[in-house]
Write a protein that binds this DNA or RNA. Structure first.
Lengths: 247, 247
DNA sequence: GTCAGACTTTGACCCAGATCAAACCCGGAC
DNA sequence: GTCCGGGTTTGATCTGGGTCAAAGTCTGAC
């Protein structure tokens, strides 16, 4: 488990969903109601949280650890369609089954709410429904952004785009690094990255080596990354906007 | 404008959103309120309905014609991230600007609702908010399904997947064809298909020719398609489920 | 009818990324 | 310490789809 994730665990110890997932504007009594129906689940690295087609009996937010959403074809080709980092929300009120495999990439703790009571609460408190719509729209935007990556970017741009995403996520939690320099651990194996990017693991490895050789990133071991010039990384990603990271 | 689209125009003449977009369960008085704030817009083929970053002052459903959602990189590479067919909904309550270009592919008629009154109505009638969440989840699923297509499928599978989608859409409207045989017009140029599939227009053309040569589809002119064996097409698409098309 | 322009097809060639194969690295079990 | 196995890197080669180029088709204006 990486350092940033541990932070989240602590930050969210009393009420994980307060963090970013559901309750940005919760009144105290609503928080209390959420407290009453919540419980925790732990999964080991590598285990399936949900299989595609499984009945989903809960919605949840990630407390610590990493999970992925993947789709798989009969012949085994797989595509990752989402990455769940601490504070992310999983599950869809109003739907019975999961359309994807949800797999724990690291040991992971989820803060769960049984679906029925959660849905009932949604009906009572419209702003939670509103917040959920907003989160779904964010996910939709992210998915469509990723369609551009998958459909039109080169292998090098794809890697840079992924690093960008992970860096942004981690950096918003990890404020220790001096401004402009981002330090983080890759939460995924080369193979998982490949499945996210529509590449092979060999190509991922080669492109990471190339970015290192060209001074875009520094690597310590196989997972620990330092980015000294985030603007440069964005350029490599073929990204025109900075998502608010650069003042 | 193709025949199916004309059908929709007639079906929806009195209240387009009643069709499938927003109002599946509307009470009569809610329909009346919607009637009061709706108006129509016409766009010519090829014109921009919204530019990326534009302020959106309305939400709308497509009455007739086709539009696309696209993202473009600075160097001109473009990726289509959504296809708007008759009865589809555009616009996101709670968001101010469009993250995508919305372009009319054919002449198109939209049934629009000014955003503010629409949002107010959403607050008054929770089931519309609920329906909107559902539609957004559908879009999210479609986007993620498409990520698998973009990331992991071959050119031939991509083309077959696109035909599958268009055939399903059109077939649900066009009940004249004998069971099992689907007949429809391609609503997109080869270039637009390429932008949807993350290919070049030459590759699209070659793969369509190949599917024709192999008897998967029949072509009359450049746009009119007959599919005699839908299961075969699904197989070519690498798709395991039939989305309920085959009994 | 015929001309212009937009769309499409087809061919020849090339290259980014896949595939196949072999080492390498490193942490944990013993 | 040594061994083992999963993850990673690197090299050699192959190929699907991109690129460049030319020709074909259709439609609508005149």
């Amino acid at each position: 488990m990486n350092h940033a994730a541990q932070n989240i665990t602590q930050e969210c110890a009393d009420c994980p969903i307060r963090h970013r997932a559901v309750c940005a504007r919760c009144e105290p009594d609503e928080l209390t109601r959420l407290e009453e129906i919540k419980y925790y689940r732990h999964y080991d690295a590598g285990s399936h949280i949900l299989w595609s087609g499984d009945r989903m009996e809960f919605v949840a937010s990630v407390v610590s650890g990493i999970a992925t959403l993947t789709q798989t074809m009969e012949d085994g080709r797989t595509q990752m369609v989402g990455l769940l980092l601490p504070s992310d929300f999983v599950g869809r009120p109003g739907r019975d089954t999961s359309p994807y495999d949800v797999v724990a990439t690291t040991d992971i703790v989820m803060c769960c709410f049984r679906k029925r009571p959660f849905e009932q609460m949604m009906e009572r408190t419209p702003h939670i429904a509103h917040r959920l719509l907003e989160m779904t729209l964010d996910e939709l935007d992210a998915a469509r952004e990723w369609m551009l990556v998958l459909g039109r970017k080169t292998a090098r741009e794809k890697i840079a785009s992924l690093l960008t995403i992970i860096a942004r996520r981690d950096a918003s939690l990890n404020l220790r690094a001096p401004k402009g320099v981002l330090v983080f651990d890759l939460p995924l194996t080369r193979e998982a990255m490949a499945d996210y990017l529509g590449l092979t693991l060999e190509t991922v490895s080669r492109q990471i080596s190339a970015l290192k050789r060209d001074g875009v990133i520094e690597l310590e071991g196989k997972r620990h990354v330092t980015v000294r010039d985030f603007a440069r990384l964005l350029e490599e990603a073929g990204d025109d906007n900075d998502g608010g990271m650069l003042a």
